[in-house]
Nucleic acid binder design. Structure first.
Ligand code: FES
Ligand code: FES
Lengths: 145, 145
DNA sequence: CAAATACCGGACAAAAATGTCCGGTAATAA
DNA sequence: TTATTACCGGACATTTTTGTCCGGTATTTG
């Protein structure tokens, strides 16, 4: 479904968001990698990209780390993260790999697949990091194991 | 979503099925690759695997090629093909890559993601190759362009 | 039987994804 | 100011996926 990079990116964002929302605390790479069970250096690469796209904020030096501003917590969606890392293909590409997904020249799965893909779009579009971080805070969801 | 191998595999199977159902005609690799716009040698590899799993039948020598028996047309589903090529992960794996998808230890997307994944399961489980080949026959669906 | 055909199987090659390392830079704190 | 901290950026390494090649084998036709 998603690439490893994307999985790590989402999990990292939710963890950063949870720490920012609950404690106003910045988190370092080592901390993140440990809490979401991901390779540290690779996760760094993924987060660097998200910082460039301003989906997350980073601060260098002692007491530095990653954080999500209240605005980012409220506005950054799963869709933005997925598109930033994996590109828009999963949101609009053909299930069977045809170069164009269209109702004019549909693949045999098109009309059955479309509603499913649309629901995925809706899921990604309507869920913010702040919302998902809340579940982790409440002990209703987990980021590893 | 699916790997390239899986996309080629499904498209090839539908084309083979359409030719078997409509004309009782075996099709060769060159023909298949041209009709579904896929790399010939790579498609061969994918089909070899499906032959081993008896999802499609192959015959060597002149007049040989690939075909689907009436039974295969009726019973082989998208799910069987996807699992044979990509494995069961897309049908049961966690959206965020947790080693186990479970409601006991759910990731933050679990309860929203589950119904979508279930619908995909249902789509793959309930559609046979014969059924999809029929759409191509009727000009309602296409395997390239 | 002999020749031609077409899938089979394994080795090989290229590209992409995943993962690591290390020096550079900016920020903090003593 | 100086030392320390922690992200940044690029190069490098490994693994997986994608794709190619070629001789072998089975089958058909003459
Ligand atoms: S054309 Fe294949 S999903 Fe739309
Ligand atoms: S635990 Fe992640 S989808 Fe079920």
């Amino acid at each position: 479904m998603f690439s490893k990079a994307c999985e790590y990116g989402i999990r990292a964002m939710i963890y950063i968001g949870q720490q920012s929302a609950d404690f106003g605390r910045r988190v370092g790479l080592k901390d993140i990698a440990a809490e979401i069970d991901s390779p540290e250096a690779f996760t760094a690469k993924v987060l660097q990209g998200l910082v460039r796209q301003q989906l997350v904020t980073s601060v260098k030096g002692p007491t530095g780390g990653f954080e999500l501003t209240p605005e980012q917590l409220r506005t950054v969606t799963l869709k933005q993260i997925v598109v930033a890392i994996d590109g828009p293909d999963i949101l609009q590409g053909c299930a069977l790999g045809l170069p164009q997904c269209s109702a004019k020249q549909p693949c045999p799965m098109h009309f059955q697949f479309l509603p499913i893909r649309d629901q995925l779009n809706e899921l990604l579009r309507t869920h913010t990091i702040g919302e998902l971080a809340g579940k982790v805070h409440d002990g209703l969801a987990f980021l590893k194991r």
